[in-house]
Write a protein that binds this DNA or RNA. Sequence first.
DNA 1: TGCCCAATAT
DNA 2: TATATTGGGC
Length: 286
Amino acid sequence: MENGFASPRTDTFPVGLRVLVVDDDPTWLKILEKMLKKCSYEVTTCGLAREALNILRERKDGFDIVISDVNMPDMDGFKLLEHVGLEMDLPVIIMSVDGETSRVMKGVQHGACDYLLKPVRMKELRNIWQHVFRKKIHEVKEIESYEGYDDIWIMQNGSEEFSDGPLPSGGDIISVKKRKDMDNKEHEDQELNDSSAVKKARVVWSVDLHQKFVNAVNQIGFDKVGPKKILDLMNVPWLTRENVASHLQEAVGEAESSNPGLHWRWASFRAWGIEAVSVESAKHDL
DNA sequence: TGCCCAATAT
DNA sequence: TATATTGGGC
């Protein structure tokens, strides 16, 4: 009745999609709310990035997708994206008036599933459920280790500013590549390389995060430091041991080239701005 | 197994 | 360049 789908409750899917909109501009907030409601979505609005983060943390499974502006006074939209994408693994759509390729790339690299240019129009909002849907496909697929396809790309963009970038221009693009040969390659389930999907973004070692890292190292002591211990002390839920190891390795490498042999940890950590702690190997020099 | 580390890949 | 992944060793 209410929509084109006849089936009673099972396939009303996009209807009632729970959207959180974050924008410091109240006017835009209102506009977006109206438009989204017209799409039969359930809309929550929020004028502050930090507030949004709190809401999301409190209602862990309360939303299906987040739409956020880039420029906000209390927190950079990318920062919000970083947190949301990693902490709760929700699709995030970034909006801004700025369609500069590098910024769009930044958004995508940080895990945005889409980048909308203001003014945002209905036709762009009507389809946002696809990002939620895509995530579902991924989840199912992970379980079934699906067969027959090697790779699926589903990309949507509403702008035409990609002429000098690596992304194709035009509207929606759906391309499905059939698997060439899978024979007995048991290495089935390759991760989808979906440039707009809800993949975890690579970790960005922000100053904040790095500081936690540094603090952890200082607590542990250079002689006993290891990725696992650092990870535990940092207490950042989404971070993995590999992430930390990789970060740690940067320091190690730097030291080895300039100071092969002993005391490399000490030398490298100093290079990273980590101050001394009570470790015997660090007692001399400096 | 889990962890660490170095090398290599992206 | 920064971060991820891989593979060997313990």
